Computed example of a mutant assay.
Amino acid sequence: MHESTPTHWDADGNLEVLTFNLDEETFAMEAVLVQEIVDLLPETIVPGASPLVGSVVNFRGKIIPIADLRLAFGMPQAEPTVDSRIVVIEMDIHGEPTAIGIRTDKVHEVATLTRDHAEEPPAVGMRWKRDFVRELVRAQDGIIVLPDLPSIFRSLSAADDHAGAPASTIH
């Protein structure tokens, strides 16, 4: 059985999401996580940081990390386009509310997904790490991927925990 962060469908089996593109794929995140959608900001590379969260920006006087989810999903990095945006979200990381910017290729809209159209990711036939996908949702024009953001960011902190450890202690 696939262990993932549960999707918080409402009592009617609906979920309000913000849809966005990475490469040619459509992804969605819960609208309640979204703080703001902004144009790209000047990024400062953080030496030694994971490429997934390899830079920071000054957002309204606070330094926040920028995540490139393309890397979590094995997609090539891409040059920004006129449609590229940063979606600033807030989520609990290590028990603290943390602001993170998610770099997107294009932001679409707030939409309502229904549980009746959602399925767990298949055990085979996916090119992405299954732990990073909560559910796949059938839509009129294809599939919408609900990424498991907590799992993605937990994988980063697990890698950070091992970064300074001797190789013999990493399992």
Rank of each mutant, 00 (worst) to 15 (best):
N14M: 09
D105V: 09
R85N: 06
T19K: 02
L15M: 12
R127T: 11
A28F: 09
D141P: 08
P65H: 10
I102E: 08
P76T: 01
T26C: 06
S55Q: 06
T169D: 11
R60P: 00
S155A: 10
R154M: 00
A139D: 02
L136C: 03
D131T: 10
G61L: 01
L52D: 12
E16M: 07
A139N: 08
F27T: 07
V137W: 07
A139T: 11
V57R: 10
L15H: 01
V107Q: 05
L146I: 09
F73C: 12
T7W: 01
V53N: 13
A159G: 06
H108M: 06
F153C: 10
V137D: 07
I102W: 06
H8A: 14
V145N: 11
G61W: 10
L18E: 07
P42E: 01
P97I: 13
D10N: 14
D83F: 13
P121E: 05
T114S: 06
S50H: 13
E119N: 15
H171M: 02
I45W: 11
R138Y: 04
V133Y: 11
V110Q: 12
T81V: 13
T104E: 05
V38G: 04
S151P: 02
V53T: 15
V145I: 15
T169E: 12
V34Y: 07
V133G: 00
R103K: 13
P42V: 02
I64E: 13
E119P: 00
R134Y: 11
S50L: 05
H171V: 11
V34A: 03
S55K: 04
T98I: 02
P42R: 07
G142N: 08
T19P: 02
A99E: 13
I66P: 01
V133H: 08
M126T: 13
T169V: 02
V32D: 14
P150V: 03
H94N: 14
D23C: 00
A118D: 01
P76G: 06
F59N: 09
M1E: 11
D160W: 13
D160L: 07
P6V: 04
W128D: 05
T5G: 03
V46H: 03
R115N: 09
A49T: 10
W9A: 03
I66M: 11
D131A: 12
P122K: 07
Q77C: 00
M126F: 08
V87E: 02
D160F: 12
V110K: 14
S55P: 08
G95Q: 09
E36M: 12
I37G: 03
E36P: 04
T19N: 05
A167S: 14
W128Q: 09
I45R: 15
P97V: 00
A111S: 09
P97H: 11
H94R: 15
V107F: 06
H2R: 14
D12I: 00
L33N: 03
S151H: 09
G54P: 01
R70E: 09
A159M: 02
P147D: 09
V17C: 08
I45S: 11
H108W: 10
F73V: 00
I102L: 09
D39H: 15
P65A: 05
A67R: 05
A118W: 04
K106G: 12
T26H: 01
Q35W: 05
I64N: 07
V32M: 14
R85K: 12
G48Y: 11
D92P: 03
V53P: 00
Q140P: 07
E90N: 04
